[in-house]
Amino acid sequence: MEKTESGKFEGLTETDQAYLADLLKQLADDDYLLSFRSSEWLGLAPHIEEDVASASISQDMMGHAAMYYGLLGDIYGRDADDLAHFRGPADRRNSILTEKRNGEGEYLDVPKYDWAYHVVRNLYYNMHKKVKLVALKQSSSTPLRDVAAKAAMELYYHELHWRTWFIQLMNSSDDAKARMAAALEKVNGECADLFHLGKYSEDITRKGYIAPASEMKDSFRKEMEKVFDQTDSVFSFPDDQKENGRLGRHTEDLEHALELMSEVYGSVPYAKW
């Protein structure tokens, strides 16, 4: 990875650093996991242009994860690559939505992935990210504000992409509509923790690092209703679910992703990439 400025969190108390670190893990792990899941679509997307688009978006998302891991590394005095690859499931703070498999089968075996799920998951995730980045651009933490401004410019194209897919498929054939309805139901069971801010949620918002979850959820609802207005469906968002990734409580799918993702890096950790 390229070298970035360091020493950005000097002067912060240890407790403040712990609050920021937890928030950074949520942001970094989200992009890292969904970037990986999206990259598993490489070569499998519905058509060649989509393959290029999807891969490009995954690359941007990995860039966003790298910026957050860079900040986290600045707090911990650790290497960003190590923080990405060598943290176990219990230390991960990503939303359940970002870790789930793309469907049945394995990439290297017979992948039977679900494109409708990919579209719905990415619309929900990217819209949630858009709302979060708006809030982070007002953060009391300068490094967070800077990184959010950078990510927001790239996200513009991602959100437009998934919104276009979503609206088109929702208004397409009966087969497409049925698949999208099933995907919406699945995503509704996995996205409740998207706006959860983890074990320090009160401190994180009191410090002004990010807006309160309730405020962001309201903005999200408004944005999503505008999208759903262009379909025959009504937007709904779950209140709760069994697991909560923001508290380190994940599904088996996370272990599966981490194992695959870190296999090469872990095989020769001292190699120069």
Binding site: M1, Q59, D60, M62, G63, H64, M67, A151
Partner: peptide, 17 residues
């Protein structure tokens, strides 16, 4: 020298550095 990355995930950045 301090540089601005064009796109955050650009793999050319370490080469440019």
């Amino acid at each position: 020298v301090t540089l601005l990355p064009t796109f955050s995930g650009c793999p050319a950045l370490p080469i440019i550095e």
